[in-house]
């Protein structure tokens, strides 16, 4: 027993000061970005074992508020910082807040491959999902009811569509919800009057809808999302109180590195670089 205790004690004595000295980076904010942030943190900590990265969610607003209070180093936000928030930060910390666009998020709408409709405007999509348009005939398709699928409200994509397409309004009660993009894609490929949304997906039997803007029909391709041409895409940001230094800078550099951006693609978002 005693012979066991000694090495244990030695390990503790060695580890404890190391743990105390290690730098900690805290990240808080957008629930959409929590998983992305955690993947980055895991990969980053594997490479830099003496820096600890803590990621928590709560929402973009919560993250930005924590940035003001000084309780987080980095705020994750799926929207741009409001001017009032930026002014408060500048007044309190005597420096302009730093903004880094770290990933892009976009949503694709799908229909069954036999559907003659190939493009819809954002307004038409909104009307379908709040329940004002119920037939494909109203948007230039066949005389058949629209079977619209949505994601569960725990999904970041759900919130994205609610914010960007529905303008914050509620989905109509007739909209059916499914767990996961895969389930939506499967359901859409089985039903010829269906409409669904999710991340970029490649599956047989479905067709990606283009988004009509003026006279132009824009496909949800990676290029169009990266260039900002596709209207249903947004930047995902990191906000800091000042230009990053030290461990925080190392983490952000990692997120923007090719390795970090590869994680972005894995998680289902689009890289910025």
């Amino acid at each position: 027993m005693k012979s066991l205790l000694k090495p244990l004690l030695a390990v503790f004595l060695l580890v404890l000061p190391a743990a105390a000295q290690a730098g900690t980076v805290t990240i808080k904010g957008s629930d959409t970005m929590v998983i992305l942030g955690q993947r980055w943190a895991e990969a980053f900590m594997k490479k830099n074992p003496n820096i600890k990265v803590q990621v928590t969610g709560g929402g973009s607003g919560v993250g930005l508020a924590a940035l003001q209070n000084g309780t987080t180093d980095i705020a994750m936000s799926s929207r741009e910082m409001k001017k009032a928030e930026a002014d408060k930060l500048r007044a309190r910390y005597k420096a302009p807040p730093a903004q880094r666009s770290v990933a892009k998020d976009g949503v694709t709408f799908y229909v069954h491959q036999s559907n003659p409709v190939s493009a819809l405007t954002t307004e038409q999509l909104m009307k379908i999902y709040v329940g004002d348009i119920t037939s494909w005939k109203q948007v230039g398709g066949a005389d058949a009811p629209i079977v619209a699928y949505s994601r569960e409200n725990s999904s970041g994509t759900y919130v994205f569509v609610k914010d960007m397409v529905l303008d914050g309004e509620d989905f109509a009660p007739t909209i059916q919800t499914l767990p996961g993009t895969a389930a939506v894609v499967n359901a859409v490929s089985k039903e010829k009057n269906s409409l669904g949304y999710g991340g970029a997906a490649y599956a047989e039997g479905i067709k990606e809808l283009k988004v009509k803007k003026g006279n132009e029909e824009i496909a949800p391709s990676a290029d169009n999302i990266k260039s900002g041409k596709y209207p249903l895409a947004r930047d995902l940001f990191f906000y800091l109180r000042a230009e990053p230094t030290g461990d925080t800078k190392a983490f952000i550099d990692f997120a923007l590195s090719p390795e970090g951006q590869a994680i972005v693609t894995q998680v289902g978002y689009f890289p910025v670089k």
Binding site: G57, G58, G59, E152, N153, S154, S155, T177, P179
Partner: peptide, 9 residues
């Protein structure tokens, strides 16, 4: 419960 518990704050 199953659908929403995953991401709820």
């Amino acid at each position: 419960i199953a659908a929403e518990m995953g991401e709820v704050v």
